[in-house]
Design a protein around this nucleic acid. Sequence first.
DNA 1: AATTTTATTGAACAATATGTTCTATAATAA
DNA 2: TTATTATAGAACATATTGTTCAATAAAATT
Lengths: 183, 183
Amino acid sequence: MDRRQRKTREAIFKAFTELLSKKSFSKITVAEIIEKADVGRATFYSHFETKDFLLKELCAELFAHVFEAEQGNVNTHSHIFDCEAPDGVFLHLLQHLQKNDNNILDLFSCEDSELFFGYFKLNLHRLVSDHMSLFEARRSPELPLSFWINHIASTFTETVRWWIDNKMKESPETVAKCFFLAV
Amino acid sequence: MDRRQRKTREAIFKAFTELLSKKSFSKITVAEIIEKADVGRATFYSHFETKDFLLKELCAELFAHVFEAEQGNVNTHSHIFDCEAPDGVFLHLLQHLQKNDNNILDLFSCEDSELFFGYFKLNLHRLVSDHMSLFEARRSPELPLSFWINHIASTFTETVRWWIDNKMKESPETVAKCFFLAV
DNA sequence: AATTTTATTGAACAATATGTTCTATAATAA
DNA sequence: TTATTATAGAACATATTGTTCAATAAAATT
């Protein structure tokens, strides 16, 4: 990809993220975005069909980055702590959040946070399915599998929401423990 | 309230709800609403400051109606089944949903369903707090109360979501059982 | 280094949506 | 009957969207 394209794309994402932390998506105008990003109007529309597409692509880029380490091969991702631990994947996600990569926390706290939590939960569904063995033991036989997967993904999402709403006072380890106690 | 006002208000709510089941909030225009509701433009704006206010008032009216029976005095609300049963409140909510009062199911299935689930969960927070005794026993002492309340309200919300997504094949009783097994 | 290709700019543009204002008319209340 | 209040409908200014185009600047190719 052309360096100019990359710079433009990044500038737009950055401006958009900053705006999202201050006002709701529906109240943000293209004029504001391009002014903050300092790019021309035609440039914006050559990159993104509409404002909605910009949002979708931001989400996709963001969560692809956060979840890529967890999907499949763990070896490509080197860390101090043990990624191989049975419950390490979820702790790992919490640590990523604490580091606030890509200013994801702003998006989880903004007016349209539901939207981002929705995407987060969607990705979690896959992750939970891949690690079902962790949770099979606690599953009552009367509970349908689809219910159980949704329940675990939701519980993790809500745990994160609670953590962020409470100013992230607890350590990722404590939060992970809460999650496993609740589920 | 003037009969004309009531009719106008109801017509707008009805048109708006129908539109919401077909397209997203952001794509619905005031022109569409007033055409479907068959009221004048000035009339619409004399009732609702903006489209956003219309949405808020719809939510408020909707959930006030669904939850009013559960808040405080149960005697004002007469039913065949036993409202006084310890876990009856949640079963009751599920039965309300099944009856589809106020076409609430359309709103839970529409593109902007997150929004309505959000309001639903907000109301549940209060309800859960009022019935905390039901869940105190299962709460691990390590889990903060705020976490626990959010967890229960979320689990119920997600149970409802799962139920609706799965075409509501199960009976309210079965779903209530799932909820209590999961939480 | 010279040339070609590609991205960006900025302005102008039509199309659409918003929210306001006004007068005439019809329904309700006194 | 009279006074009050809600509505209709049109006209209006304003703002936003998404497109187009010619000029310019940056990057890739030869």
